[in-house]
Design a protein around this nucleic acid. Sequence first.
RNA 1: GCGUCUGUAGCUCAGCUGGAUAGAGCAUCUGCCUUCUAAGCAGAGGGUCGCGCGUUCGAAUCGCGCCAGGCGUACCA
Length: 573
Amino acid sequence: MLKDFFLKEVKKGVNEAIKAGTLGQMGVEDEFSLIVEKPKNADFGDFAINVSSLARVAKIAPPMIANAITEKLSKENYTVSVVGGFINFKVSDSMLADTIKEVLEKKENYGKGDGKDKEKILLEYVSANPTGPFHIGHGRWAAMGSALANLLKFYGHEVYQEFYINDAGSQIQKLGNSLRIRLQQEVGKDVDFPTDEVERKNFYPGDYLIPVAKKFLQENPNVDVDTVELSVLCDYAKNEMEACQRKLLEGCRVHFDKFYSELDLHKSGKVEKRYKELMDKGYLYEQEGAMWFKSTQYGDDQDRVIKKADGSNTYLTADIAYHADKFDRGYDRLIDIWGADHHGYIARVKASLEALGYNPDKLEVLLGQLVNLVIDGNEVRMGKRKNMVTLDDLIEEVGVDATRYWMEMRNIDMTLDFDIELAKRSTDENPVFYVQYAYARVCSILRNAVNEKLNPETGEKSPAPMTKTELDNLINNFDKSLILKTADTAKTLILKLEEFKSVIALSAQNRTVYTICRYVQELAQEFHSFYNSNRVIGDDKELTSARLGLVEAVRITLKNALDILGVSTPERM
RNA sequence: GCGUCUGUAGCUCAGCUGGAUAGAGCAUCUGCCUUCUAAGCAGAGGGUCGCGCGUUCGAAUCGCGCCAGGCGUACCA
């Protein structure tokens, strides 16, 4: 990465200047940190490092520091200028050519990390109850989670994606009871969900169980809807909901390596085992008939019930066992994506892990702010128990690409207002089309390079600029001296391609996906701009070749970035 | 009350561990299609960075205190 390159150069320069005694009172043992940035004004250069922070220890003015360091720089492949406390760098055309060469050689691997700090990561996200269709919020976790998994893998981590199915709690009973009411209605009985607000909370009155009831009756025509066992209804409804959820996830290009059933966790005895372990270690006590976990010993603000007075477990009980099990399966790091409404759970889960002897710092919880739906400029609150806009509805309306992109493009700390009308629009208000359009344009140019041209007015055909073999050969054996022909007009575009590597590294380290969205928009913009002021296919064969190599490099980088986001790359639009 | 997230241009948001005149997209206005996709490009206007105090040579960025909004504060999941 060029950023790292210049940072290393300057650090070397600092040490040499210290030895030469030109850095005032600064000594070799003095620690310092520098950052590489992009100059606000392009005239200054391509990269810049501000050395003013060294003034504190050196006790000399920033410009003197910058000059002292600059004297020691090799300046082999770049030129340097000092302005105030800034050392500005301009890269040589040869370095730009190296970038194109690198992209063309590495292809789908361009931008990948070196795997130096590789970890085995378990990423858990979505983890919805199988009690109904996904809501919009699940869409955010699904899109962000899968993109993050792609990103972390691309960076070089080993990533295992998991969906925890909450199929064991009381909500499943509610689901079964709700299905019974729908069944009774189907056979013509005059029953309905309670109108009392409190009682109604024991049911899922959404419409979505109606088709499930119809299907059940088709498969079980002789069933007595009043007496059929609740467990049968629970299982049936649960399986239907799960199937429906998985189908949607696949459709959204969200792939899980495992769907981990809470029910199976209980059956395995692991929940009971962990409960006993906490008991044996003295972390539990009884109060008012319930068993409490002393989570305050590990930083939680109050103790938590782990077994209710009626003998049943809380959600936390299974979650403790689940997270412990993740560690037992040998992962270096656990990453969970949770909705902000689960914020209070972090402390208690971490406390339990620490109590059980695991390192709670190895669990990272990415807390996602919630999603509001905006329809006609008005916020629509979501609620599972009444009818709502589901994720299915949203995707049907705006499509997978736009849905994913809109869910991914915002910082996870921000409440997301999802404006359906805006996302649906296939105009310049929609960044996803802007980026895809750039990709389609790139593909179009590459097609034109090898296709004969038809003049629509005269009907005359002119021969293709080059054959497919020639193009492949150009790309696969790119002569980097060619790029010098176009370097001056393509400099910002090439630097943007080069930046991809540091964007990947930074995004992976910070676990941010939106930074990839920003990058891909910037790259598209640089390309569109280049396209408008430079003709790729022209009479000058060498210039054409140089620019085709560049265009292919843009295609590769856009593809690599969009693949991470799970957004499609249409070759024509 | 406590915890947490957010408050930057008309709108939606960037601003990396503090640093060169505060950025982008949309919206508004002005130009650009007989040449590779105008779903595009070039340019213009538009901001007391919620408020105050502090740390610093330097603060949108760090600390503290306010103000406003979201979420949480269950023997629900």
